[in-house]
Amino acid sequence: MAETEKMIFPAQLHQTADGGIVVSKLDDMINWARSNSLWPLVFGTSCCAIEMMSAADAKYDWSRFGFEVARATPRQADLIIVAGTIVMKMAPVLKRLYDQMPDPKYVIAMGACTISGGPFFYNTYSVVKGVDHVIPVDVYIPGCPPRPEALLHAMITLQEKIKHETYFGKAKTEEGK
């Protein structure tokens, strides 16, 4: 993927006598668009949400990657960053939010709580021990709470993942190539 990353646009210029022809693969195009336009849902339950806000601020500035269009309605979001503990009462709501999002949709589990329950793993009666019990997760970020850079890294990792998808059929994996 190193080549496509450097490229401004996922296309190649074929030189001809009077100019050139731009050739591109549909898959590359789609993946390029999808990976560069991840609009997160405004969703934060606890401490990690503050670090998510920090990622949006001027110092970390996730708008550089085009992530700043945070949508309040799941209908227009591509990505749900589960920032904070999910408890039993919240789990159905989260599931519902995920269902309300249109495809393609991605999930980032931010923080220890969403990975396993984190600090609230032992002796708690109301915490969901890992958000992947409720919705499928694409990228996990450890930390309690993770630093904003970690969130940016996760989002860039997600971009990498999206670049391996195919519009029709299965994902481009190492074996399937």
Binding site: T85, V87, K89, V93, F120, N123, T124, Y125, S126, V127
Partner: peptide, 26 residues
């Protein structure tokens, strides 16, 4: 309420006096 009720009070009952403090940060 209760969408982020993490049972910190119950949890603290089984933690030592040094350890229960970390939960309050959250």
């Amino acid at each position: 309420l209760g969408y982020i009720h993490r049972s910190i009070e119950k949890m603290s009952e089984s933690l030592s006096y040094r350890n229960f403090i970390y939960a309050t940060s959250r």
